[in-house]
Simulated assay, not measured.
Amino acid sequence: MADTAAPAADPADDLVRARAGDDAAFTRLVEPLRRELHAHCYGMLGSAHDADDALQDALLKAWKGLGGFQGRSSLRSWLYSVTTNTCLDAVRRRGTRALPVDLGPSSERTVADAAPRTDVAWLGPYPDGTLGAGPLAPDARYEQREAVELAFVAACQHLPGNQRAALLLFEVLGFSAAEIAEIMRTSRASVNSALQRARAVVAERVPDRTQQQTLRELDDDRLREVVTGFSTALERGDADALVALLTEDVTWSMPPLPQWYRGLGPVTDFAVRVPLTGCGSWRHIETSANGQPAVACYLRGDGSDVHRAWSINVLTLRGARIAEITSFIGQEHFPAFGLPAELPPATNGTFVS
C-alpha cells in the first residue's frame, strides 16, 4: 500500500501562511522552539508560572508582529528577541525571586510553627521532563539541564535583568555578542560588559561541579537508592536512615518559609521535630525538577483518609549523598509536573513509585 501520509509542511511556506493570518502555520513554526523558549523564560524569571505567562505574552506579540519580521536573522533569533524583551519587561515589573538562603543566616534552632513570608517573591521549581540533555547550540557552555539547575537559576536572580539576559543568551543558547546586542537593542560593548559582570557574580555562587556532572558519575541503582531512601526515611520516621544519606554540611530550606537549616545537627533536629514526627503521614512520588532528582511529598493530617499535595523536594547531591534539600511548599507547584493534587488511600503499603 502506498504511503498516504501528508508531507511535512515547509517552514518557508508556513512563514508565508502565518504572515497571511494562518494561526495553524504559526503554531507549526514555533512548536519546535516552545520548550527551549519556556526554559529561557524560567531562567530569566525564576518561576514556571511566570514563564508560562511570559511565553504566552511573547508568542502573542510575535504573532501580531510577524509582518515586521524581515528575515535578516533566523526566526529563532527573532523569537528570542521578542521573548527576552518580554521577560525583561516582567523583571522590571516584578523584581527578582529569592530562596531562604538569600534572606539571612541559617536558624540554629528548629522553628516548628514557622509562618510563610508573603512579602517575598520566591524562586520556584521547574518541571524538566521534556528538556534535552545536550546544548542548544554548538558553542553553548551550559547544557540545557545545567541551565535550569537550582544553583545556576538562583545565582542568575542576583543579576540585573540585562546581565541575566546576556549571560543566558551567550552561555546557554550560544548567541554571539553581536546577535545579543541586536536582540537586546543595545551595543556589543554593553553586551560584553554585562557578560563580564554576570560571569563574576555567578562564579561566586555556583559550585564548581554541576549536578549533571555529579549525576553522570552515579549509576542508576545508586541514585535510586538515595532518592528512595530519602522518601522511605520520611515515611517511616527513620532519622538514622535519613542522616545516613546527608553530607555533614547539608542544608534544608522550605520556601515560602523563611527559616533554613545548615549542618547535620540543626538539619537532623529539624527533621526529627517536624517532618518525621510532627506533621502526619507521608507518601511520595519520585520525579525530577531543575535537572535534579526530586520527590513530590503528599501529607495526610489528622482526620483525613487522603494524602494531599504538600511540597516538591529538590535534592542536590554531592557524590552519593544529599547536600541540599529544597522543599518548595505549595499545591500550586504540582500541576506543572503532571502530578495529582491528592492520593487515594493506599492498598499495598504507602510508597508510590
Rank of each mutant, 00 (worst) to 15 (best):
E248L: 03
A154L: 04
C156W: 05
N348Y: 08
L343T: 05
T83P: 05
G291L: 03
L150N: 10
D50N: 09
E324N: 10
T4M: 14
A244V: 01
W252S: 11
E179F: 06
R283W: 11
A155C: 08
T83S: 08
R117T: 06
R28Q: 05
E342A: 13
L131D: 05
C87W: 00
S106F: 15
E171W: 10
P345R: 10
A239K: 04
A233E: 00
K64V: 14
L167K: 04
Y126C: 08
Q70D: 14
S187E: 13
R205F: 00
H284L: 12
A6F: 14
R185W: 13
A58Y: 12
T251R: 10
V243R: 13
A115E: 07
R283K: 10
V272C: 11
A114K: 03
L167G: 00
L60D: 04
A296Q: 05
F351M: 14
L59H: 04
S73E: 13
A154G: 12
I285G: 05
G291R: 04
H49D: 09
V153P: 02
P32H: 00
G129L: 13
L168R: 03
R197D: 08
H38D: 15
V250Y: 11
E36P: 08
A121H: 08
A147N: 01
R209T: 15
C41A: 14
I180S: 11
G104E: 06
L339I: 05
R17L: 04
S327L: 00
G132K: 02
A203Y: 02
S47K: 02
W310R: 01
D221M: 10
A114R: 04
T86Q: 13
I329K: 01
A200W: 12
R109H: 11
A244Q: 03
L246E: 00
P275E: 10
A9F: 09
E171A: 13
Q70T: 13
L167T: 00
G21Q: 12
L218S: 07
T287V: 11
E179Q: 15
F26G: 04
A12S: 12
A115Q: 10
P207F: 11
Q292K: 01
P160R: 06
A239W: 07
V206S: 02
G237P: 07
R17A: 12
R273L: 12
L15G: 14
A151Y: 08
E225L: 07
R236W: 04
G349E: 12
A166F: 05
R321D: 13
C156Q: 06
R318C: 14
V91L: 09
S253L: 12
S281G: 06
